[in-house]
């Protein structure tokens, strides 16, 4: 059995018991560190370089209070999406909103994303991949696998000979008013 040896396990018994409040606050800190070198740290700067260089008075401390607050807690303008855009999205995505909650889910997602606009990104290049500074591997253009038609067709619901079968094509999804979608009601 592992870790059965001596020594004490870690527990959370400090000077004062901490009841697990899920969104716990700083009020519990009293008992943790009598000398509270933690309090001063809150005035810290924001430059990673400076701090990483190390200031002997400020070593090894964890902030007493949250260092930032959710933007969400401040009122943000509500985001409304027009029925035209919703209809367009249903056609593009080939999934439907199903109900009012579906639309609200989108509006909340946009509202959440709008926090990004607070960040100054002037002169910053977009990042596609963390491997952008490396050459991606390209193998030799040789056939390495194949002869698995049957295996691949086995997972399709409808096939004829060696073909996947689709219903009639080149017919666009019906217009909003002719489609079975919740958006008609909301219009």
């Amino acid at each position: 059995m592992r870790k059965s040896g001596g020594g004490r396990m870690w527990s959370l018994r400090f000077g004062r018991s901490i009841r697990g409040s899920p969104s716990g606050g700083a009020s519990h800190w009293g008992g943790l560190s009598p000398g509270s070198r933690f309090t001063q740290a809150a005035a810290g700067g924001s430059d990673g370089r400076q701090e990483a260089a190390g200031d002997p008075r400020r070593r090894g401390r964890v902030y007493q209070n949250p260092t930032w607050q959710h933007v969400e807690q401040r009122p943000l303008p509500e985001k409304k999406v027009t029925v035209e855009v919703l209809d367009h999205l249903e056609r593009l995505a080939l999934v439907d909103f199903r109900n009012w909650e579906g639309v609200q889910r989108l509006e909340k997602a946009i509202q959440f994303a709008d926090q990004l606009h607070a960040v100054n990104t002037e002169g910053v290049e977009p990042m596609d991949s963390v491997l952008e500074d490396r050459c991606l591997y390209l193998r030799e253009d040789n056939i390495t696998e194949g002869n698995c038609t049957e295996e691949l067709l086995r997972n399709a619901r409808e096939t004829v000979e060696e073909y996947f079968i689709a219903p009639p094509g080149n017919i666009p999804l019906p217009k909003l008013e002719e489609r079975d979608t919740f958006l008609q009601v909301s219009e």
Binding site: L12, G24, V62, Q69
Partner: peptide
């Protein structure tokens, strides 16, 4: 130390 961090996790950290 983000908003919502529990006091217990903070203490352990």
């Amino acid at each position: 130390h983000a908003p919502g961090l529990s006091s217990e996790t903070l203490a352990l950290w």
